[in-house]
Simulated scan of single mutants.
Amino acid sequence: MPKEQGRKLVASNRRARHDYHLEDTYEAGLVLVGTEVKSLREGRASLVDGFVDIEEHEAWLHGVHIPEYTNGTWTNHSARRKRKLLLNRVEIDKIERKVSEKGFTIVPTALYFKDGRAKVEIALAKGKKTWDKRQSLAARQADREKEQALGRRLKGMD
């Protein structure tokens, strides 16, 4: 059987981009059991409540919901268990130093398969204030209106 190529997105956390300023992103492997992989291959996962915690120089993914595999038996996994992330020691140390600073947290932004292996993209993030959210919404609205006006002008409607 040929090996999978490319990147297949399973889940993305669009809410993280709305609630946080994303600083650095890292790609990490996941330690999963068989039924979790099968459930992910069906395209079922949710990153909404997920976060990463560093415990004893190891990165752990908490709160990510991977539902039980429908054809699984008694060997099925629990949906919200904590999962170990596979990162280099240098990356873990760098992340740990940043998180010890005030206001930084680690959030998962995407869950995908890359060349047949499950990966999660995590980001160092700083929480946005409500006025930051309003500013980003206003900037996005202004860009949308600018694109619409340019499109109307190109079509000769204006």
Rank of each mutant, 00 (worst) to 15 (best):
G43M: 01
L137G: 12
E145N: 11
M157R: 09
A59T: 04
E4F: 12
E55R: 15
D132C: 03
L30A: 02
D115G: 14
E91T: 12
D143S: 14
V33P: 01
D143P: 05
A59N: 07
E68V: 12
L124R: 03
E68P: 09
T35M: 03
P67V: 11
R44A: 06
E91P: 00
V64S: 01
D132F: 04
A149W: 04
P2S: 14
A11P: 05
L85K: 02
H65D: 13
L47F: 06
R89A: 06
V37C: 08
H57D: 15
Q5G: 12
G63L: 03
D24W: 04
G6Y: 12
E121S: 02
W131Q: 11
L86T: 13
K119N: 07
K133I: 15
S46R: 03
E121R: 00
E91I: 05
T105R: 05
D49Q: 11
H62W: 12
K129S: 13
N88A: 14
K82P: 10
A123C: 05
K94V: 07
R7D: 00
W131E: 14
I92L: 04
I122H: 00
G63N: 06
F104D: 01
V120K: 06
D115P: 06
Y26E: 10
D53T: 07
G63I: 02
A28W: 05
H62F: 11
L47S: 09
E58N: 15
E101W: 01
R144D: 14
N13T: 11
V10E: 06
R15W: 03
N71A: 12
Y112A: 06
K38W: 10
M157H: 04
H18D: 13
G72K: 08
D93F: 03
K155R: 14
A139H: 11
G103K: 04
M157V: 07
E56T: 14
V99G: 02
R97L: 14
